[in-house]
Amino acid sequence: MPVKRRKDKSRAFKITEAAIDAYRARDFRALHQALGLRPWEMSPLPDTPLGCNPANPPAETERTNLFAQSFQQALELQRELEAACR
Rank of each mutant, 00 (worst) to 15 (best):
A59Q: 10
R29V: 03
A59M: 08
K4D: 04
K4Q: 05
I15H: 05
P49D: 11
N65D: 15
R24M: 04
Q33S: 08
R5W: 08
R86S: 11
R6T: 00
S70M: 13
D21A: 13
Q33Y: 05
A30P: 00
A55P: 00
V3Y: 07
A19T: 02
A12C: 06
D27L: 02
L81M: 11
E80A: 15
W40D: 12
F28D: 09
A22F: 01
L31G: 00
Y23E: 00
V3S: 08
L50H: 03
D27N: 15
A74Q: 10
E17N: 15
E41M: 12
L35E: 02
L77V: 07
R79I: 10
E17K: 15
Q69C: 14
W40N: 10
L77E: 04
R5S: 11
T16Y: 04
R29P: 00
P57K: 06
D21S: 08
M42F: 03
E41K: 04
A74T: 14
C52A: 15
D47R: 10
T64V: 15
I15K: 05
K14M: 07
C52G: 04
E62G: 03
A68K: 13
F13Q: 06
M42Q: 11
R63L: 06
A55T: 10
R11D: 05
A74Y: 11
E17A: 13
K4G: 01
A74V: 13
I20G: 00
R79K: 15
P2W: 09
P49Y: 06
S43C: 15
Q33P: 00
K7C: 02
V3T: 10
D21Y: 00
Q78H: 14
T48G: 02
E17W: 03
A25I: 07
K4V: 07
T64C: 12
P39C: 06
P2E: 11
A25M: 13
R29I: 01
R5A: 13
V3E: 06
S10K: 06
H32K: 15
P54M: 06
L45H: 06
C52Y: 08
A55N: 14
Q78P: 01
S70G: 14
P49V: 04
R79G: 10
T16C: 05
K4R: 05
G51S: 14
R38W: 03
A59R: 13
R63E: 04
A83E: 14
F71V: 12
Q72L: 07
R24Y: 01
R63S: 05
L81W: 10
P44M: 13
K7D: 05
K14E: 12
N56P: 02
C85P: 00
L81A: 09
Y23L: 00
I15G: 04
L81F: 13
F28V: 01
E76G: 01
A18K: 07
Q73F: 09
D27H: 07
L37Q: 10
A25Q: 15
I20L: 13
Y23V: 00
M1Q: 08
E62C: 10
D47Q: 09
L50T: 00
N65Y: 01
S70I: 12
P49C: 04
A84H: 05
G51F: 12
D47H: 09
P54L: 07
R6F: 01
Q69V: 08
Q33I: 03
K7E: 09
L77A: 07
F67I: 07
D8C: 11
Q78F: 04
